[in-house]
Design a protein around this nucleic acid. Structure first.
Length: 746
DNA sequence: TGGCTCTGCGCC
DNA sequence: AAAGGGCGCAGAGCCA
């Protein structure tokens, strides 16, 4: 096959990276500017090519202009799409720099390129047929769909009243007599109670349901009292379980799985309840159905096993999302007033002392300008490390920077956590997404209902501000929370097989104080006394930071940034390091001390991670959870850092996810009147239990405690059991108290 | 005005 | 040359 590759001049320097992908194929390259489409087709014809691949956005624009005059199409949206014109096939590709700047570029290029060179291996796309259901046709359509093997479902919604505007169904019928698959999509407009009832009836059809991010659709179905049965498949979760590092939007999945596919999301911008609107809905359902079949055909067994672990999580997540937490209105208002007042007075002070009545401390540009005035024109950023440098140069700087920091902190609180529109019916809602991260942690975001907040980054309580007090227990309920103790460090210890670290995490003594003692040669008794009270907080904090830094494979500059100049200076004098050492030298020393204490972690274990990724592209965790890795940890330190952070973070996530499921099935479902599952926050489970049902605290504790066999770098298997500490009896999230009777009674 | 990217920052 | 992992959200600033 002959292919014409129409590039841009910006691609020129990346052509060497492309060459290996073109080997064995007859490809002609051209990077001249685009005049007209005809001109490009003439270039192709000149070399006998009917297939044109392009990275040229102008060409894409010209190809689409007739259909979508509204806005410029984005190359990234259309990457992988095939557009037909005049008997030519156009394959849209991202700019060639993706081959070098993204870990997935090479893989995607190869895959998309095979849409031309290896056409028969692609899943065949059937014809798209669809119709709008009417009261007259619904009866017969219902009969027809009753025999479907699968039904893909997708809804459209509007913000007003959180209403469903229509629901699309794409039936899939397997006919074993002639070995064919039939598809047909319908859209039921949700225009009145009668149609809503029909949507509910279709949702009750027995066929397994396929959705793309069905948690969204189901939030609306549940809101309107028409839940579906047999939701078994979700293309979002399927794809995440296969290639967690790739995008997971339906349009991306479609162009990844299907050869002849053209991005269609630009069609969405049409009037509600118009025919095009319904067509768009039908097409989404159709796409979900065929993407599902393509995924089933192609996904390897390890990815399916991932799915068996991941998909069940959507049910407790959906329940927790719709439960949310009640807001304590008076605490909320009081806090908001307090913060607004603090901002106003600090801002006034700052502006008048600078003599700049319009100065905005949140503007990076203005703050960098201010550095110039203060004689720090070498600092070009206004972020935390930059401010740290500036404020340590002069007491006047410190005064100004302190004001800026106070204002920024409080403004952040106000805009992200004390904003309008947090609640629905007095409750703060959110999403918990099992497909949101590369490691298998849940991600969180604002609710599907266009309100609420991300529940996993709530500000921790400070001496002056107690934010968590705005989350209130329901009437006759208490808030409780179960936390894994030092989960990631335990994971690092068992996964690496560093026996010193294993000994440290398993000790009854304080983890960070033990570290401080081994790192700096100070007797443990001088850091923590016999009662467990901390005597040397500074030293303990220092070892905490060093441990944290080393675990994430920090370089010394970054350790300096996170520790701050003052802390590093303090470390230098406290540890009696040479006075002529620079801050960076001190940081280098601190990281070296970690390596000396725990030589296996950043030594043989990291080597093992590199070998695994380079030779297999896989990181397989103790639960079997497998991450496909596109990056190269040998050539690229960023990739190395990601893959070094993955095993402990993922193991911790898997542990928590299993506990989350257990709590759902063994505590929440059997006790619907007395227990509410609220959220998962990376190493904790937040819940509510009815006053008097202290036994449920113990039940959660039991669900969270379990054993995992972990094999280390050298093949030794050990049983890891992460201890759990329980907090409970909170009238708000801020006043949960440590539960101390669990151990005694157990 | 709306949409986009960049910067900054909250949590574990 | 320099390189901290995993997230999501808001404001600033710029462009059309």
């Amino acid at each position: 096959m002959k292919i014409h590759l129409q590039l841009t001049s910006a691609d020129r320097s990346f052509i060497p990276s492309l060459k290996p992908l073109l080997q064995g194929h007859n490809v002609g390259l051209n990077d001249a500017p685009i005049g007209t489409i005809t001109e490009v087709e003439m270039r192709a014809t000149a070399r006998g090519a009917k297939h044109i691949a392009t990275t040229n956005p102008t060409l894409l624009y010209k190809l689409l202009r007739a259909e979508y005059a509204r806005k410029k199409p984005s190359l990234d949206d259309y990457a992988g799409s095939i557009i037909e014109r005049n008997g030519y096939e156009y394959l849209i590709l991202n700019p060639l720099d993706h081959l070098v700047t993204t870990p997935t570029g090479n893989f995607l290029y190869k895959r998309y390129f095979s849409k031309f060179t290896d056409q028969q291996k692609w899943f065949p796309v059937p014809n798209f047929t669809w119709e709008i259901a009417t009261p007259a046709s619904l009866g017969s359509l219902y009969t027809k769909f009753s025999s479907a093997s699968f039904i893909a479902v997708d809804i459209e919604t509007i913000k007003e009243q959180l209403a469903i505007t229509c629901s699309g169904y794409c039936g899939v019928w397997f006919d074993s007599s002639n070995n064919t698959i039939k598809f047909h999509a319908i859209v039921i407009p949700c225009t009145d109670e009668f149609m809503l009832a029909w949507i509910g009836k279709f949702n009750q059809l027995p066929a397994p349901k396929i959705m793309q991010n069905g948690k969204y659709d189901n939030a609306y179905f549940l809101r309107w009292g028409i839940p579906p049965v047999n939701w078994t498949w979700d293309t979002l979760n399927l794809f995440h379980c296969w290639y967690s590092e790739l995008p997971k939007r339906l349009d991306f999945i479609a162009s990844f799985i299907l050869r002849k596919w053209e991005f269609w999301k630009d069609e969405a911008d049409v009037p509600i309840h118009s025919e095009q609107y319904y067509r768009y809905n039908a097409k989404d359902a159709f796409t979900t159905a065929i993407a599902f079949l393509g995924l089933m055909q192609e996904m390897p067994s390890w990815a399916r096993q991932n799915y068996q672990q991941e998909f069940p999580l959507v049910f407790p997540c959906l329940q927790a999302e719709l439960t949310g937490l009640k807001r304590n209105e008076s605490n909320f208002q009081k806090l908001k007033d307090q913060i607004e007042e603090a901002i106003a007075s600090e801002l006034q002070l700052l502006r008048s002392s600078l003599g700049e009545p319009n100065f905005n401390p949140n503007s990076p540009k203005q703050v960098v300008q201010l550095w110039k005035v203060l004689g720090s024109s070498d600092i070009s950023s206004s972020d935390t490390p930059a401010r740290d440098i500036v404020k340590n140069r002069h007491p006047i700087n410190r005064f100004v920077v302190d004001r800026i920091e106070n204002i920024r902190k409080n403004r952040k609180l106000l805009s992200s956590y004390l904003k309008d529109g947090l609640t629905l019916h007095g409750r703060i809602l959110y999403q918990l997404n099992p497909s949101g991260t590369d490691t298998g942690r849940l991600a969180s975001a604002e609710s599907h209902y266009w309100c609420g907040l991300q529940i996993q980054n709530i500000p921790r309580d400070r001496t002056d501000i107690v934010y968590k007090g705005i989350f209130a227990a329901d009437k006759e309920f208490y808030i409780g929370e179960g936390d894994y103790d030092q989960a990631e460090s335990r994971g690092t210890a068992y996964l690496s097989g560093d026996t010193s670290l294993i000994e440290t995490v398993n000790s009854d003594k304080d983890f960070h104080a033990l570290n401080a003692s081994s790192f700096f040669g100070i007797p443990y008794e001088k850091i923590v006394d016999a009662l467990g009270d901390v005597l040397d907080k500074t030293l303990r904090d220092l070892s905490k930071r060093v441990n944290h830094g080393a675990n994430y494979n920090m370089a010394e500059q970054v350790l300096l940034n996170t520790m701050g100049i003052e802390n590093v200076l303090r470390a230098r004098s406290m540890l009696r390091l040479p006075k002529n050492w620079t801050l960076l030298e001190v940081c280098r020393y601190l990281l070296a001390v970690f390596d000396k204490t725990y030589p296996i972690v950043r030594g043989p274990w990291y080597d093992k991670i590199k070998v695994d990724v380079i030779t297999t592209h896989m990181l397989v965790g103790p639960t079997g959870w497998t991450r496909y890795c596109f990056g190269n940890p040998v050539r690229n330190k960023r990739d190395m850092n990601r893959y070094a952070a993955h095993p402990p973070q993922s193991l911790n996530a898997m542990t928590l996810n299993q506990a989350w499921l257990k709590v759902f099935y063994e505590v929440a479902l059997p006790n619907p009147k007395d227990f509410k599952l609220c959220a998962q926050i990376h190493d904790s489970i937040l819940f509510q239990y009815r006053v008097g049902r202290d036994d449920l605290i113990r039940s959660v504790h039991q669900c969270m405690l379990f054993d995992t066999a972990v094999v280390d770098t050298f093949g030794t298997s050990r049983i890891l059991r992460v201890p759990v500490s329980m907090k409970a009896e909170g009238k708000t999230w801020a006043d949960v108290k440590k539960v101390d009777w669990l151990k005694i009674a157990a």
